[in-house]
Amino acid sequence: MRLRIRLAKVGLARFLSHLDLQRTVERGLRRAGLPLAFTQGFNPHPRISYASALATGTSSEGEFLDVDLTEPVDPGDFVSRANAHLPEGVRVLEARPAPEAGDSLMASINAAAYRLTVTGAEEAALRSAAAAFLAAGEVVVTREGRSGPKAVNIRPQVYELTVTGPGELRALVQTGSEGNLKPEEVWAGLVALSPDLSGAELTQVHRLMLYRRDPGTGACAEPWRL
């Protein structure tokens, strides 16, 4: 049996690296006595696959992973047993049976929604910058690569950008194997377009959800039945 899990990483747990999060989840599920399926070989480990790595310092309520089990477990029971053995800030929010066919979870995901919290910016300045961003033909930022810094046009990787309140924006951006845009780059693009934001600061990034986005229609589906 395979369960698809939605996980939250909040509070101080947001400072866990992706590798630390993997270890934390594995230890919690093992301590819960759940019937985890293991890989074969000299160093067996639970068969758990993640949709997308989350940057250290970024909180989330939309992390997805698939967990293979050797016997059926009621999804609600899985949630309660897992949370009893996971540390504060790491919580299983929901579990459902995973699809039996189709692409892997990682291969299915190509978009992510983020909430960006900003200090030191007037709401009017944020709205003006977001409108300028969406209207721009290109938004160029500097990205550090293996061969050094390079200029990158990030505009095609930003699908939605809205101001949702004072000091708060929501961004839907590309993620996954075909391209991965960091929320910090969205903020850098906004600052580049608006001198009014030069003294403002991006203070928190929170991932709201992962999606499979249809490139033709722009429709987004949550990962439950992909």
Rank of each mutant, 00 (worst) to 15 (best):
Leu105Ser: 07
Asn153Lys: 10
Leu172Glu: 01
Ser108Asp: 10
Val139Ser: 00
Val140Ile: 12
Gly165Asn: 08
Gly148Met: 04
Glu123Phe: 02
Val173Cys: 05
Leu116Met: 11
Ala135Tyr: 00
Asn180Met: 12
Ile154Thr: 06
Ala101Leu: 08
Ala130Leu: 09
Leu169Val: 06
Ala129Gly: 13
Glu122Leu: 10
Val186Ser: 03
Pro166Glu: 15
Asp214Gly: 05
Ala192Ile: 04
Pro195Gln: 13
Ser177Gly: 03
Ser198Cys: 00
Ala129Thr: 06
Gly167Thr: 01
Ala121Lys: 01
His206Met: 11
Glu138Cys: 11
Ser177Pro: 03
Ala136Ser: 15
Arg212Glu: 15
Gly102Thr: 12
Val191Arg: 09
Val186Leu: 11
Glu160Leu: 12
Glu160Val: 09
Met106His: 12
Thr117Val: 09
Tyr211Met: 00
Asn180Gln: 13
Asp214Val: 09
Val163Phe: 05
Gly102Asp: 14
Ser177Arg: 15
Thr175Gln: 06
Val141Ser: 02
Tyr211Arg: 01
Ala111Ser: 14
Ala135Leu: 08
Asn180Lys: 14
Val163Glu: 02
Arg213Thr: 13
Val139Leu: 04
Glu160Thr: 12
Gly148Trp: 00
Leu193Gly: 14
Lys150Leu: 13
Val158Asn: 03
Val158Thr: 08
Gly148Ser: 09
Thr119Asn: 08
Val191Met: 07
Pro195Lys: 01
Lys150Pro: 07
Gly148Val: 06
Ala107Glu: 15
Gly148Cys: 08
Glu201Thr: 12
Arg207Asp: 07
Glu138Ser: 15
Gly167Cys: 06
Leu181Asn: 07
Lys150Phe: 05
Pro149Val: 04
Pro195Asn: 13
Asp196Lys: 06
Lys182Arg: 15
Ala151Asp: 11
Pro149Ser: 12
Arg207Tyr: 08
Pro183Glu: 03
Arg127Ile: 10
Ser194Trp: 00
Asp103Glu: 15
Glu138Trp: 00
Pro156Asp: 03
Leu172Met: 11
Ala132Thr: 14
Glu144Arg: 13
Ala132Arg: 14
Lys182Ile: 07
Pro215Arg: 02
Gly102Val: 12
Gly216Lys: 08
Pro215Ile: 11
Leu210Val: 07
Ala131Leu: 05
Glu123Arg: 12
Thr142Leu: 11
Pro156His: 05
Ala192Ser: 15
Ala200Tyr: 04
Val191Trp: 02
Ala171Gln: 06
Gly148Glu: 04
Phe133Ser: 01
Gln204Val: 07
Val139Arg: 02
Met106Tyr: 09
Ala188Leu: 08
Ala171Ser: 12
Pro166Arg: 14
Ser147Val: 09
Gln174Lys: 15
Ala188Gly: 05
Thr117Met: 03
Leu134Arg: 14
Arg146Gln: 14
Pro215Cys: 09
Lys182Ser: 13
Ala135Cys: 09
Tyr159Trp: 13
Met209Lys: 07
Trp187Leu: 05
Ser108Glu: 07
Val140Pro: 02
Glu168Gly: 00
Asp196Tyr: 00
Pro149Glu: 08
Glu178Pro: 01
Val173Lys: 02
Thr142Asp: 07
Arg170Gly: 01
Ala192Thr: 01
Gly179Tyr: 11
Ser128Cys: 10
Glu123Ala: 09
Leu172Asp: 02
Ala101Trp: 03
Arg127Ser: 15
Ala151Val: 06
Arg213Leu: 13
Tyr114Pro: 03
Thr164Lys: 05
Ala131Pro: 04
Val191Gln: 10
Leu105Asn: 03
Leu161Ile: 12
Val139Glu: 00
Leu105His: 05
Leu116Ser: 02
Arg146Val: 11
Ala200Pro: 03
Ala151Ser: 15
Glu144Ile: 15
Met106Gly: 01
